[in-house]
Design a protein around this nucleic acid. Sequence first.
DNA 1: CAATAATTTGCAAATAATTTGCAAATATGT
DNA 2: ACATATTTGCAAATTATTTGCAAATTATTG
Lengths: 133, 133
Amino acid sequence: MYKKILQQHNISVTKQRVILLEILDKVQKPITIEEIRLHIKGDINVTTIYRSLKKLVDVGIIYQTDFRDGVSYFEFQGDNHHHHITCVECKSRDHIDICITDESLSIAEKKGYSVTNHIFELFGLCKECSKQS
Amino acid sequence: MYKKILQQHNISVTKQRVILLEILDKVQKPITIEEIRLHIKGDINVTTIYRSLKKLVDVGIIYQTDFRDGVSYFEFQGDNHHHHITCVECKSRDHIDICITDESLSIAEKKGYSVTNHIFELFGLCKECSKQS
DNA sequence: CAATAATTTGCAAATAATTTGCAAATATGT
DNA sequence: ACATATTTGCAAATTATTTGCAAATTATTG
C-alpha cells in the first residue's frame, strides 16, 4: 500500500520510507522526529529520517508543520486533509477540518504563483486553560 | 510611537524593544534575527533579541512565522495584516492579503479554543521558476 | 521625587535540532 | 542481470536557540 503511494509520486521505494509512512499513518497526528524514532523497531539513521521525511514532504505525501517549539512535526493526512489548533498553555491539540480558501489560492495565482504547499496553524487557549487565567 | 504600542500591551518600554520595533516597522517584511542584527546600529545582545522578539510576539505586536528554512522570521504588520506566498525555488516572497476565515475561527471556538494567534503560509512556484521547470 | 519591587539585559557557555561529505548499499530501467 | 541513479549510514560539523546568573534598567508605591 505504501509502496504504491511512493510509486505514484515517482520516488524510490525503500524500506525506510515505507516504515516511516507506516508509523505516520498509524499515529494519525503530527509527531516529531524524536517521537518517530521511538516507534521504529530496529533502527534507521537519523540522517536518513531527516532526508526521507523531507522527500515525502517535497512530493506532497506528508504534511510538515511547526508549532513554534523549535521542532518540526510531520503528519500523514491521507484523504482527510486538515489543520490544527494548539493550546499555547498545555500544548493540547485538536483538528480543524478547514483549509485554504479558494479565494487565497486565486489571489496567489493572480500574483503569478502556483501554490503547491501550505502551513496553517492556529494557536490559542483550550477550555481548561481559559478557566485558570 | 513605539513606546505607546509597548505600553498599550502592558510590557516594559526598553531601548532595545523600541529599536527592534523601529527596524521591523521600517523593513515591512519578514526578516530573520541575523538580518535584524545587521540593521542594529551599536549592539544588542543576541539573547536579548531572542527574548524581546518572543515577548513582542506573545503580546501580539509582531508576527512570527517560519518558511521552513530552519530560521524564524519576524514581521511588524501594523494595521495591514497579511500573510505570504514563498517560491520554493528562488525564495521570492509576496504578500497575500487574506487571513483566517470566520468559519475556521468558529470551528475552533466550538471545540472550546479561543484563538489568539496563527501561522498561515503558502508555498509554490513563482512565474519565473515555473517557466524553467 | 525617592525607594523598593519587578522586569529586563548582557555574557559566556550549553543544548539540541539539523546538515554535510563520502563510501557502501540498494533501487530502477533496459 | 547490468549499468545508472538514488538512497543510506556514519561521524563530525554547523547553527539556531536557550539557560543561569549578576548587573542594569524600568515600573510602582508612598
